[in-house]
């Protein structure tokens, strides 16, 4: 019988520390599957963020470097420039990529670094206890917006993907979601494209993944998926941006 589904070699056989219904596990697996399918496991170097996914290197089965909060794309720049033969990617949350690391993000993208950035947008800071993220929606309650985010007080949800799409060094930006099986498949396709662009030396690619955080959205896993579909995608529309 032909084997059509198996555990990716790029994913260690361990259980993760993520909460029930969290999107990180799915995103990790999609990356692992793509790395396997492109046959680049022995060439890939991942850069882990600070945030819930900081120990992603405990789950992936390839070389990884940890970066300080927000600095993943600077670290990745150093690696890729020294070792252009390797495939280098960052995995970063919204706080990491679009708040404390905005500078590193914009400039790595603008230099057209031949890198792949996987950007997990769950509209909240997970590891530190559910504070406001740059992508928190208007009205959304978090630990630091207990009365809901207000535009005239906290500013608007930051659309970093749209900003990056304006830059000449950026070749590919797509926003995908994990709220339904079909969307997960689309997400995988986008991740694969972003890695493929690097293999083809095309420049900077970014995939933004809308990902559920039931714990800090104070929802059940099912409600969280519905909230992405019905609320989050209104602010962050899915599809190819560049």
């Amino acid at each position: 019988m032909k084997k059509i589904f198996k555990h990716p070699q790029s994913l260690r056989k361990v259980s993760t520390h993520y909460c029930a219904g969290c999107g990180h596990g799915i995103a990790h697996r999609l990356i692992a599957e793509v790395v396997d399918e492109l046959n680049i496991r022995e060439k890939v170097i991942g850069v882990a963020p600070v945030g819930c996914a900081v120990v992603a290197y405990d789950y992936w089965n390839f070389d990884c470097c940890e970066a300080a909060h927000g600095r993943a794309l600077a670290v990745a720049t150093g690696i890729k420039r020294c070792r252009p033969q390797n495939i280098v990617f960052t995995y970063q949350g919204d706080g990491d990529l679009a708040a404390i690391g905005t500078n590193e993000t914009i400039h790595a993208a603008n230099r057209g670094e031949n890198l792949t950035a996987i950007f997990i947008n769950n509209a909240v800071y997970g590891m530190t206890g559910g504070q406001m993220a740059p992508t928190t929606l208007i009205g959304q309650k978090t630990a630091t917006t207990p009365y809901g985010r207000e535009a005239n007080y906290h500013g608007w949800p930051l659309k970093i993907s749209e900003i990056l799409a304006l830059l000449k060094g950026v070749v590919y930006v797509e926003r995908v979601s994990l709220h339904a099986p079909l969307e997960v498949l689309k997400a995988k396709r986008a991740i694969k494209q972003a890695f493929f662009n690097q293999i083809e030396k095309r420049g900077f690619s970014l995939v933004e993944i809308l990902s559920p955080c039931p714990t800090y959205w104070q929802m059940s896993p099912k409600e969280a998926l519905d909230w992405i579909k019905e609320v989050m995608t209104k602010e962050f529309p899915l599809g190819r941006i560049k």
């Binding site: 470097c65 970066a67 600095r71 600077a74 670290v75 020294c82 400039h107």
Partner: peptide, 13 residues
């Protein structure tokens, strides 16, 4: 900040 972190990346490999 970015410069020192690029150095960290280069050193790591």
């Amino acid at each position: 900040v970015s410069a020192i972190n690029m150095v960290l990346g280069a050193s790591s490999c």
